[in-house]
């Protein structure tokens, strides 16, 4: 369970100008909630994810995961609570290391690392994990990750992010850089993993169709605030067009730009 209370973050843009990226944001997501986040560029979606992950520290406010206050924990100490998949498939894996070495590192997420061989004794587990992907990666455990395609790397990253089921999973446009077919594969995998492990998921996406189809809740952000929170029946009745209309309401002046961007 993820609880965010009165979160604020302001960036210094230099030259005395500042940007309030997150404004007094309150948010709660239960265990098993799969929340998709939409909003135009600069709405604060990625900033919110980075605040939860600990890349930035907030100016004020609190963040709790399963009742534990993580607001002041440095990024590496939050790792045991949070799995992450980035937009760039290159960013989630170490390219010069093998598949099994990458998985071995993920297996020790947030735990003390010892002077024990990392891979030995875990190969069967890794093979099982990768065989779920149906990409044949289970036979390439000793290949370097740089030999994989973008989609394969992103699948591996997803497996690594959820290998020991951290309570919160953060997905920052994790299918945006992939071709449509691979993207839908990754989305299916994501759904499966989330259901199996009962995680709390925040997924940023620019694909409105995806935002409404995937998960059980959709929030729209604008200017550092949550302007729309859809779930249950109301969400089922919402179409991409009504979502776009909502966009236009909160942001009339740049509606056309956004329509071009989001359609």
């Amino acid at each position: 369970m993820l609880v965010i209370e009165k979160l604020n973050k302001t960036f210094e843009l230099g030259g005395g100008t500042t940007k309030r990226a997150i404004k007094d944001l309150d948010f709660q997501a239960q265990k098993g909630d799969f929340v998709t986040i939409v909003g135009s560029n600069g709405a604060g979606k990625s900033t919110l994810l980075n605040l939860v992950a600990g890349v930035y520290s907030p100016d004020s406010g609190k963040i709790f995961i399963n009742g534990i206050d993580i607001t002041d924990l440095p990024e590496h100490k939050r790792a045991k609570f949070i799995g992450r998949v980035f937009q760039d498939p290159m960013m989630g894996t170490a390219s010069t290391m093998t598949l099994e070495e990458n998985l071995a590192m993920a297996l020790k997420r947030g735990q003390k690392r010892n002077l024990k061989l990392g891979v030995k004794g875990n190969r069967d587990k890794f093979r099982n994990t990768l065989s779920k992907l149906d990409l044949g990666l289970e036979d390439r455990l000793t290949d370097q990750v740089r030999l994989l395609s973008g989609g394969q790397r992103q699948s591996l990253t997803l497996m690594m992010a959820t290998l020991n089921a951290p309570p919160v999973l953060l997905l920052d446009e994790h299918t945006a850089a992939l071709d449509p077919k691979t993207a839908s594969c990754i989305i299916d995998m994501t759904k499966e993993i989330v259901v199996d492990n009962e995680l709390t998921v925040l997924m940023v996406t620019h694909n409105l169709q995806q935002a409404l189809e995937v998960g059980n809740r959709t929030i729209m952000m604008h200017d550092g605030e949550i302007v729309l929170d859809l779930f249950g029946k109301e969400r089922e009745d919402t179409s991409v067009d009504t979502l776009l209309e909502e966009f236009s309401k909160v942001k009339k002046e740049r509606f056309l730009d956004d329509r071009a961007l989001l359609a």
């Binding site: 170490a94 997420r109 990392g118």
Partner: peptide, 25 residues
């Protein structure tokens, strides 16, 4: 090839990723 050694190698390969996995880079 140990758990510590793998993390050390990842520090040179993909620092952001290994920090997200809980390593004090």
């Amino acid at each position: 090839h140990t758990e510590v050694g793998l993390a050390l190698r990842a520090c040179g390969d993909n620092e952001k990723m290994i920090r997200a996995l809980g390593v004090d880079t």
